[in-house]
Write a protein that binds this DNA or RNA. Structure first.
Lengths: 145, 145
DNA sequence: ATCATAAAGGATAAAAGTATCCTTTATTAT
DNA sequence: ATAATAAAGGATACTTTTATCCTTTATGAT
């Protein structure tokens, strides 16, 4: 459903939100460790997320990744769009370049419901809410030690 | 959602069913052409589907791929399982190896509904029905010429 | 000013997914 | 029996995804 890169991205963004709740910026290395992802690769992913304005970054000592007011309406869907593109949400799920109501593929009308569910899953909770759930222990971003 | 290989597989299986409705076996080359897939690659995919008993095959002149009574309860879900494995249906969607009701990832409870929709999409219609829809022109497997 | 820190960016590599080609095996038609 | 046909299987190649490492740029602390 999500690429491995996108799974890392989702976890990274939630972790950044969690730390930003406490006003902390976090480095790529720390993020990688907290979400069980290779840190150099995590850094690459974060570059994309910064470019797409899903999170913010600051260089130098005391620098790191963070979110502020300007990111408050971003959702997991924006993360997925930034990393995996729109293939989960748009286009023919069987790869037809001509697929429409008039010329539907066998899954055309069914995929609509699935996509609507996916959309809901990725937009119904704010990233802040998701971060709070991790913060209070009701969900986790990695296996517990 | 589906790998490219799986998209080919889905279309191939529906096409085989469609031709089997008329008692025709079909070759890998013809299938490739009908579904806009490279035929050598299509042949490889069909090998897997045959091994998994999703379709049948017969060598030699008059040979080809077909389905009969023994395949009647196979669904698109079996095609997806044969090609992409169970990752759409099982396991943590964020890649955690420990993810459960007790230790849920942030998407754990939402993904259940999505998966239930996907399951429905891939099992509610028989492959025969899907083939009939292609047969009567209400759905298509490739762009029309 | 200098040094330490951390993100950004570039080059490269390993692994997985996608694709092609050629040989072998099974089956049918002659 | 022989030749033709079509799937099965093996080897190989190309592309994309995943991953690592090293250099450069920006910033803060001393």
């Amino acid at each position: 459903m999500f690429s491995k890169t996108c799974q890392y991205a989702i976890k990274a963004v939630i972790y950044i939100h969690k730390q930003s709740l406490e006003g902390k910026k976090v480095g790529a290395k720390e993020i990688g460790q907290e979400i069980d992802a290779p840190d150099a690769f995590t850094a690459k992913i974060l570059q994309v997320l910064v470019r797409q304005h899903v999170v913010g970054s600051f260089k130098g000592p005391t620098g790191g990744f963070y979110v502020d007011k300007s990111h408050e309406f971003k959702t997991l869907k924006d993360v997925v769009l930034a990393i995996d593109g729109d293939q989960l949400f748009q286009g023919c799920s069987l790869g037809l370049n001509q697929c429409s109501e008039q010329n539907p593929c066998p899954l055309h009308f069914e995929i609509v419901k699935v996509r609507s569910n996916i959309h809901y899953m990725l937009t119904s909770k704010s990233l802040k809410q998701l971060a709070e759930e991790v913060g209070d222990g009701s969900t986790v971003l990695a296996r517990l030690a």
